[in-house]
Design a protein around this nucleic acid. Structure first.
Length: 106
DNA sequence: AAGGTGACTAACA
DNA sequence: ATGTTAGCCACCT
């Protein structure tokens, strides 16, 4: 695990219940604002070893962009709703209003 | 060892 | 509005 990787995990664990963060936001907190895509790479395999609020990470558009069969978007939406995040569904796509639920980073 | 590929995104054409 | 490009860096050939 690299330093960036470790810092990214820490940042994700810091996301408060009931809020969401973007890949870019986490990358920034981990020290590399332009490495957003790496956050997805990390989650793509870190998901199973729980103790990580992976469901709170979505893309800049406020959409769930997960592509993992083990952990489908429907599950992510379900988990977010269970902690109070309003997830809207529009034919298979899930949206979150970032103006209301985006974590302020502290 | 070297190159391709992304759960991304900002900048450009 | 829509499409491409360039950074980023962990992983997998």
């Amino acid at each position: 695990m690299s330093a960036f990787h470790g810092r990214a995990i820490d940042a994700i664990r810091r996301i408060p219940r009931g809020t969401v963060a973007t890949y870019g936001q986490i990358a920034g907190l981990a020290g590399s604002p332009r490495a957003a895509i790496i956050i997805g790479e990390i989650l793509r395999r870190q998901t199973q070893s729980a103790d990580l609020p992976w469901q709170r990470v979505i893309n800049k558009e406020g959409r769930i962009s997960i592509v993992n069969m083990q952990f489908p978007a429907a599950l992510q939406a379900e988990l977010l709703r269970s902690e109070g995040v309003d997830v809207r569904e529009v034919n298979g796509a899930y949206h979150v209003d970032l103006t209301r639920f985006l974590w302020n980073g502290s």
